[in-house]
Design a protein around this nucleic acid. Structure first.
Lengths: 124, 124
DNA sequence: CTTGCATAACTACAAATGTAGATATATGCT
DNA sequence: AGCATATATCTACATTTGTAGTTATGCAAG
């Protein structure tokens, strides 16, 4: 099951919030860029049809939605697609690209070094 | 300028081959999955309109196409978008995800360790 | 108990995308 | 020279996506 950019944006908020209403989600996204309530609601409806989220409870006639998909799973599958499409299926060039070009702090780097050391030990 | 999945697939081949004809590209892609010549040619035409590639020369009435965009630039901009959308703009969680979950050989790991060491030295 | 409003539900539409048919035409072969 | 064929060009169409208008309706306040 694939998510569009906008659908993913809504899911990111839901993963963060655990649950949320359409008006809440609209207000959050409207802080970033101008978008009408009905637009956000349409995206929520589509996510519901795709079973990426579900209605968790209501308050008055306002509906709360909660994620049905797990962030790590979705990220993992998006990453796999991305590596296939953009880096011809090879993770190493992507990792190299990030470690060389993307912004990383000293702490980030030391944490990543630790991960690599652990990874290497598993392989030996 | 954004590229669709199919457009990117054609560009990946062009970056590899330096230049190619529509029939060549069609044959290569058709090895992976069934697709008609005209479909591939449509994508090439769209890439030409987007100025991602250009006609480099002809042989008879067959046209050779060459990339106008640079692989590293396109990858960089796609990666930036991807990090923004999927990892909320933070490279470190993506790097961590890859170093933990994706397949890497000992050689890969040692190369990445070297990159990190160099990166750290630049920062200090 | 009515009514205005917030929210939900439904409908619409243009642009991008994957897909390919229909048509035109230059070239190389007989 | 005429013709078959490969290639190019043009047109079309369904689906997905972002975007939002229109309509329906339940609830809260007076």
């Amino acid at each position: 099951m694939s998510l569009s950019d906008f659908e993913l944006e809504v899911m990111q908020l839901l993963w963060e919030l655990e649950e949320a209403t359409a008006p809440q989600l609209h207000k959050l996204i409207a802080q970033r860029r101008p978008v009408k309530y009905t637009t956000v609601k349409t995206i929520i409806d589509r996510l519901e049809k795709k079973a990426a989220l579900q209605r968790s409870r209501t308050e008055g006639r306002t509906i709360f939605y909660a994620p049905l998909t797990v962030k790590k799973d979705v990220r993992g599958s998006l990453l796999k697609d991305f590596i296939n499409k953009v880096f011809l299926g090879k993770s190493q060039p992507l990792a190299a690209h990030i470690l060389e070009e993307e912004e990383l702090s000293i702490d980030d780097i030391e944490y990543l070094e630790k991960l690599l050391k652990e990874r290497k030990q598993e392989l030996q």
